[in-house]
């Protein structure tokens, strides 16, 4: 199990290791984001008694390649009256912040490159690219900064649907942010640290030590806020086709549009990892199952849950989202924090 123990007798983390990790995250998560679109279409199709993509390759598996070719070769259009600089920067913000956020969470187990590999042999690649000791706040802050992408995109494109999408982005951000923070506060109080590694250690006592049993309310609140944070379906106000065409993404095409998607899928993975590490025992071993398999399973479960919810629920109106966040979830989160504090003191 040497590959899964993240604490303890670890080799020194070198700059080369971090660089390799960064490249790994960029390459693999981008690929997973592409594969995620395929998974999403298939899962949604089966839940709605359809077949989904079937024509390109076996089971439609090569659909990803076809989509990629389409995205890369599509004409890149910047609307005439748009603010072209901001218009071009916006998708980069979404994608970049999503990957910066991934730098603060554990992605894949850590490992040492075998000695026989030339040049890089023996380099230790850490699980967390940048282990800041305020990891959880860093990830939340970076994901919050990611919402500047849709906001700027909507405002720069001189399109009324874009402006509505941007306004909804602001609404959504101001609604969910409080709930995310307050729902995470209760587990943070229990652990007494902001480091994701400490969260993992605090739940190393097996199945019963998972925080979901101590903090079920915070878990549900965090999940709901997480759906809002990643623009997943019950709260996909920003780009709901039936109401605002495509919202902030109306004028985008080709790879610029693709970057929004990569950012969204990377954010889904980040939220899944956060939920798994904070509430579901992180990357601790589970019986005979190794820790790194456990966290992959948990992340896969949360990813599936997001698709499942999309298939099962209609989306809400902006005013319903605000009502939900400010009048229902925030009071519950505050009460949860107060109760947790009282229980800890007594």
């Amino acid at each position: 199990m040497e590959t899964t123990t993240l604490i303890g007798q670890l080799p020194e983390v070198t700059a080369a290791g971090v660089a390799i990790k960064a490249i790994l995250i960029l390459a693999i998560i981008s690929a997973i984001a592409g594969f995620g679109t395929y998974l999403e279409r298939k899962v949604l199709a089966f839940m709605q008694r359809r077949l989904g993509p079937t024509h390109v390759g076996p089971y439609g598996l090569l659909q990803i390649a076809a989509d990629g070719i389409k995205l890369f070769t599509k004409e890149d259009i910047v609307p005439q009256h748009a603010n072209s600089l901001i218009f071009k920067v916006a998708p980069v913000i979404t994608a970049a912040t999503a990957f910066i956020a991934l730098a603060g969470v554990p992605v894949f187990p850590d490992f040492t490159i075998p000695e026989f590999v030339p040049v890089l042999g023996g380099t230790f690649v850490p699980s967390i690219a940048s282990d800041v000791n305020v990891g959880i706040l860093f990830v939340i802050g970076m994901m919050a900064a990611g919402l500047y992408g849709p906001l700027l995109a909507g405002m720069a494109q001189a399109n009324k649907w874009g402006i509505i999408g941007a306004a909804r982005t602001a609404i959504q951000f101001l609604s969910y942010e409080v709930v995310t923070g307050l729902s995470l506060l209760a587990p943070i109080m229990l652990v007494g640290s902001l480091s994701l590694i400490d969260f993992n250690e605090a739940q190393s006592g097996g199945f019963t030590s998972w925080f979901i049993w101590q903090q079920p309310v915070a878990f549900v609140l965090f999940l709901i806020a997480g759906f809002a944070e990643t623009n997943r379906t019950p709260f996909d106000l920003l780009e709901h086709e039936a109401e605002v065409i495509s919202g902030y993404a109306t004028e985008y095409s080709g790879m610029r549009w693709g970057m929004f998607f990569i950012g969204e899928y990377a954010n889904m993975i980040t939220i899944s990892i956060l939920a798994a590490v904070v509430f579901l025992g992180g990357y601790n071993d589970f019986g005979f199952i190794a820790g790194w398999i456990m966290i992959l399973l948990k992340v896969a479960f949360f990813f599936f849950l997001m698709l499942w919810v999309r298939a099962a629920w209609p989306h809400v109106r902006p005013d319903q989202l605000m009502w939900l966040c400010w009048k229902v979830l925030m009071p519950i989160a505050v009460i949860n924090v107060v109760v947790t504090g009282i229980v800890m003191m007594v």
Binding site: V134, L137, G141, M142, A144, A166, A170, F173, L174
Partner: peptide, 17 residues
């Protein structure tokens, strides 16, 4: 640093609106 990030991202977002 993180507080600066979170607080001002939210504050400027409100300014944008």
């Amino acid at each position: 640093g993180v507080v600066q990030l979170i607080v001002y991202v939210g504050a400027v977002m409100a300014l944008y609106s």
